[in-house]
Computed example of a mutant assay.
Amino acid sequence: MKYTLALSVLLFTSCEQQKIGFVDNSTLINDYQEKIDIEKKFQTKIDAFQKRTDSISKAFQLEAQEFQLNAGKLSQKKAQEQYEALGKKQQMLQQKIQFEEQQIQEQSQSEIDSLINKVKDYVKSYGETHGYTYILGSNEGGSVMFGKEENDLTDTILKELNDAYKTKK
């Protein structure tokens, strides 16, 4: 009797239908409006950074050209001092530019990482709410080689993510 009951429970649970869906990771992330907005925000920062960098570079080039024109009129010692000061200034400007560029990259990466975690959490919540046993992610590497179109949740989840994002804005 015990074995029959155990076998019945085993058969029942193994016959239980598992609900499996999948999402296209690239589409889900790249078409998410919040990611598009983050990219626009950082493109604006990058453009402003590039303008400042160009302006600083032009000003430094003018200063270097002026030094070259006037170097012949200066004593060797004075010319050497100004040359060294110009070299230090150039190095300082390069360090400042590299630091600012690194800051922009780190901020961008941090926001994208946060966004990816947010999407993962949303997919998990969606799966739990809609009774999925698994929601797989497909990508170029081929973690899902095939899936029936009716099991593709990408557009559904993307729409819900974008709708939720619009209401937050």
Score class of each variant (00 low, 15 high):
Ile112Ser: 05
Gln33Val: 13
Ser26Ile: 08
Lys88Pro: 00
Gln17Trp: 09
Phe67Gln: 09
Lys77Ile: 12
Leu86Ile: 04
Ser26Phe: 11
Gln68Gly: 07
Asn117Leu: 10
Leu86Asn: 01
Val123Thr: 10
Gly142Ser: 14
Lys118Ser: 14
Val144Ile: 15
Asp31Phe: 05
Gln95Asp: 11
Thr44Asn: 04
Ser75Trp: 04
Leu74Tyr: 05
Leu74Val: 02
Asp24Met: 15
Lys89His: 10
Asp47His: 04
Ile135Thr: 10
Asp24Ser: 12
Lys78Thr: 08
Lys96Cys: 12
Lys40Gln: 10
Ile97Gln: 01
Leu115Arg: 02
Phe60His: 10
Ile38His: 04
Gln80Ser: 05
Lys41Phe: 08
Ser75Phe: 04
Lys120Ser: 13
Ile104Cys: 09
Glu66Pro: 00
Phe22Val: 15
Gln103Tyr: 02
Asp37Lys: 15
Glu106Trp: 04
Asp54Cys: 08
Ile20Thr: 10
Ile56Thr: 03
Met92Leu: 10
Thr53Ala: 08
Ile112Gly: 02
Gln95Val: 11
Asp37Val: 13
Arg52Cys: 07
Glu84Pro: 00
Ile38Glu: 05
Val123Trp: 00
Ile46His: 01
Ala48Glu: 12
Glu100Tyr: 02
Leu93Trp: 01
Glu100Thr: 07
Phe22Asp: 01
Glu106His: 07
Ser114Ala: 14
Glu16Pro: 03
Asp31Thr: 02
Asp121Lys: 11
Asp47Leu: 12
Ile38Phe: 03
Leu115Glu: 07
Asn117Gln: 14
Gln65Gly: 04
Val144Tyr: 03
Leu136His: 03
Lys77Cys: 02
Asn30Gly: 10
Gln43Leu: 11
Gln82Met: 12
Gln61Ser: 09
Ile38Arg: 03
Ala64Lys: 08
Gln95Arg: 08
Ser26Lys: 15
Ile112Cys: 08
Ser143Phe: 13
Glu34Gly: 04
Gly142His: 12
Asp113Phe: 07
Asn117Ala: 13
Glu66Asn: 11
Leu69Ala: 03
Gly72Glu: 03
Glu84Ala: 06
Lys45Met: 14
Ser108Cys: 02
Arg52Ala: 09
Gln90Gly: 13
Gly141Trp: 12
Ala71Lys: 09
Glu111Ala: 13
Asp37Pro: 06
Glu39His: 12
Asn30Phe: 10
Leu86Asp: 05
Ser75Val: 08
Asn70Thr: 03
Tyr32His: 15
Asp121Pro: 05
Lys73Ala: 11
Gln109Asp: 09
Asp121His: 08
Gly137Gln: 14
Ile38Pro: 00
Tyr126Phe: 15
Gly141Glu: 15
Asp31Leu: 09
Ala85Leu: 14
Ser138Lys: 07
Leu115Thr: 04
Ile112Gln: 05
Gln102Met: 13
Glu111Ser: 13
Phe99Lys: 03
Thr53Cys: 06
Ser138Asn: 07
Gln94Arg: 12
Ser110Cys: 11
Ala59Trp: 04
